[in-house]
Amino acid sequence: MASPLAQFEITTLIPLHVGEYNISFTNSAFFMALSVMAVMVFMVAGMRKGAMVPGRWQLCVEMCYGFVANMLHEAAGRDARKYFPFVFSLFMFILFANLIGMFPYFGFTFTSHIAVTFAMASFVFVGVTLIGLYKHGFKFFTLFVPKGAPLALMPLLVVIELVSYLSRPISLSVRLFANMVAGHTMLKVFGGFVVTLGMLGVVPFAFIVALIGLELLVACLQAYVFTILTCMYLNDALHLH
């Protein structure tokens, strides 16, 4: 039987090389494309009529929009509005990636790859830092100086703040990556038990049913967490505490 980690294997579908760089189209890229397509179909079909009184599908699209718009507004304020398309794309992309990854047998979850989550988190981190620097200039660095702290402790506190700031992309990416890997590995391990235990396999099977419910929750929750943390970082950059 395949290892529980075999599901995370990358297989090349279309080999592509530019110079010495390998940019092959892999199963991971395929599922990214699938997520993008799903987001597009979801929105285009949902908003096709753009009805005054929305149908069920249109209501779903509008609720996603309202959910992210609210989140951004509450976490980062009114002046973060112009970053809404990015935050909305991020949420929908991760959500659909996580949900499509939940398909048994066929699904591949590219958010379970640290390279992908770290790339996204780094992009957010660099982007937010540049926004902060652009908006506040040198004053941006007061973000690392806690207000009202005793002067003697200042060097230590600034170092702590700096380390915590620099560890943001790591915590952001590892959170999503670890949640996805843990959930999918667990499902695979219990799936193996179903096969090896024969008749007694109904016990792990029942467990898997419950676990899939939990994993669906985690899929949505982690998309939410990634997005809300992005909003909070954006808030720090825009308003410096």
């Binding site: 990358i10 940019i23 892999t26 993008v36 929105m43 398309p85 990015f86 794309s89 390279a115 790339a119």
Partner: peptide, 24 residues
């Protein structure tokens, strides 16, 4: 496996971003 994923991630996320920002 890093580079091929990151490369397609940026391209495909760019696609979804442009779609959402300019259409949806």
């Amino acid at each position: 496996v890093f580079l091929p994923q990151i490369f397609w991630l940026f391209i495909l996320f760019g696609v979804v971003y442009l779609f959402i920002a300019h259409s949806a």
